[in-house]
């Protein structure tokens, strides 16, 4: 292969215009020994690619993996990554629960609940008397309020009378004028 053709191919290669076949031609050329000095470094690049392609895992890997997988046949393999994810979620939930608990404790301490009213009387007669007393007290309150409201009524009537008189006097005044 002449060097001019190679140079053209290389130009195409750098511009990413080569096909896979043309790239193979370049690889084949650089495998050879007749390489111009100016292309020494480019040759190293292609040789590097070739050397990279030879890196392999070896057959021992196959046997180890096949053995490992056959051992697990049927059962699902626990994935460490998913465990880590689950642990993260669990930790998050735990933090939220713990925070809620402590906040509630604090709130309870700061504002203790008022004591719930419980039954204080066991004797029904006594309870009746006490209820009666309480109701009487309320009734008394109502009576007092009613008499006070009566006074308001009296005020209203007095106000009306005064207004009536005032309008009569005004009429007289206007008649005199």
């Amino acid at each position: 292969m002449d060097s001019k053709h190679i140079e053209q191919l290389l130009e195409k290669y750098w511009n990413c215009e080569t096909s896979l076949e043309e790239e193979q031609q370049l690889r084949d050329f650089f495998k050879g020994t007749a390489i111009p000095d100016s292309l020494n470094e480019t040759a190293s690049l292609f040789r590097f690619f070739e050397a990279e392609k030879k890196k392999s895992l070896g057959d021992s890997f196959d046997t180890a993996v096949t053995k490992e997988l056959k051992k697990r046949q049927g059962g699902k393999i626990i994935n460490m990554v998913s465990w880590v994810q689950m642990a993260r979620i669990a930790a998050g939930v735990l933090v939220v629960v713990a925070a809620t608990y402590f906040i509630r404790q604090e709130v309870r301490r700061a504002y203790p609940e008022e004591k719930v009213v419980t039954d204080t009387y066991t004797d029904p007669q006594l309870a009746f008397e006490e209820t009666k007393k309480a109701l009487m007290m309320i009734g008394k309150g109502f009576g007092k309020a009613k008499s006070e409201a009566g006074k308001i009524k009296m005020f209203n009537e007095a106000e009306k009378k005064i207004q009536g008189k005032e309008t009569g006097a005004e009429k007289e005044e206007s008649a005199n004028i």
């Binding site: 990279e52 392609k53 890196k55 392999s56 895992l57 890997f61 196959d62 993996v65 096949t66 997988l69």
Partner: peptide, 18 residues
């Protein structure tokens, strides 16, 4: 199936991961 389709690509996978 697994041995025929997946194992042969092991070296490509290895090189890419490397």
């Amino acid at each position: 199936m697994f041995e025929a389709r997946v194992l042969p690509v092991k070296n490509k996978l290895f090189r890419f991961a490397f």
